[in-house]
Amino acid sequence: MLKVENISVRLGKFELRDVIFTADPGGYFVLLGMSGAGKSVLLQVVGGLIRPDRGRVILNGRDITSEKIQKRGVGLVFQDSALFPHMSVYRNIAYPLLSGRMGRSQVRRRVGELADITRVAHLLKRTPLNLSGGEQQRVALARALAPEPELLLLDEPLSSLDVRLRSDLRALLRDINGRGQTMVHVTHDYEEAAMLAGRIGVIENGTVVQTGTPGEVFLNPRSEFVARFVGIRNIFGGTLGGNKGTLRNFISGGIKFTLLSDEPPGEGFVVVRAEDIVISASRPSSSAVNNFPGTVRSVQPARIGAEMMVDIGIELGALVSEESVASLGLKPGKKVWVSLKATAIKYIRR
C-alpha cells in the first residue's frame, strides 16, 4: 500500500500543497488532472527524483520519503519511454538486473519472462530507436518491471500513442495489474482514467481535490475540472446489455440508449459529446437510432453557439448554433426531439 501524506513541494512558481492519497496494494490508482496540475511532480516525489519540502511517502509500511532512489522499490515509466538509445532492447530490459547479484543465465531467463509478458520477445536484438511508440512503451514497461518494484508509477504512458495502440497497451496495463502489481498512473485523459482505474484521485492546482471510484468521481464531481467534462460531455452510469458485434442496449435512469461496443456486458458509463446531439422540432427520420422526446430546460450562450439542457428523463447537455436556437425557437419549456447516432455514444467499462 502506498500512502502519500501531506506532501508539499515548491518548485519555482509551481507548488504541490498537502497532497494526500492512498493506493491499495494490488490496486490501480489513477491521478487525473490537467497538464500543469502537478501530476508529474507528484510522481517524481514518490519516485524519489524530487525531495518534498514537507510530508511523507509510505510504501508498505516503510517511510521512503528520504530513502535513496535506488532503494525505494519503485518503478517509473515515462511518457516517452526514456529507453537507452545506445543499448539493445535486451540490454535495456537487463539494465536494472545487471546491478544486482543475478547470474547471467538468471538475467537471461528473467528478461525472457518479461519480454513474454509485454510481448516484445521478437524485438530483443533491436535498437530502441527504430521501434514504434507502442513497442517502446512495452519495452519500457518490461524494464521497469524487471527489478520487481513494489509500486509501479506510470507518467502519461499512453499519451504519445495513437488510438489503436492505446487500447493494446491498456490491455497490457490491466494484465500487469491483474498479476498483483500495484500501480499509480498519471493522466489528463478522463477516458483513460475511467477505463483503467480502480480508484481515481483528481488533482487540481497542486492538490488532490477528490478521490473515489470512477463512478463516485464522475457522477458526483467535486472539482471544476471533472465537472467541466461531465457538463459538456454527458456521462451517465448504467448497465450494458447484448453481445459483441450487435447494436447494444445501455440502460441508465430508465432511458435506453442504443450503441456499439466490443466490451462485455456489465456496469459502466456512457459518454456523449454535447456537439454530437441533434435537436429537432419533430421526430426525425434520419439514420440515428436514438430518438428521444424531451423538454428544453435552459439555453445559454456558449463560447461558440449555445449550450442547452434538455430533459429526456435524464438531463442532456447539447451544443447548438445560434441559428438553430432562432429557427427552432429554443427556449425553456419547448418540446423537442433529441437524436443521437449509435456511434456517438461511447461506452466505458467500469
Binding site: G48, L49, L76, A82, P85, S99, G100, P147
Partner: peptide, 22 residues
C-alpha cells in the same frame, strides 16, 4: 536527455554506474 539519467537511477543504478553506462 536528463530523463535517461533519471530513468537509470530509478532502475537502481548508482550515480557512478549512471555516469559510466549512460
Amino acid at each position: 536527455p536528463e530523463k535517461l539519467e533519471k530513468a537509470a537511477l530509478v532502475l537502481g543504478a548508482s550515480p557512478a554506474r549512471v555516469f559510466f553506462t549512460i
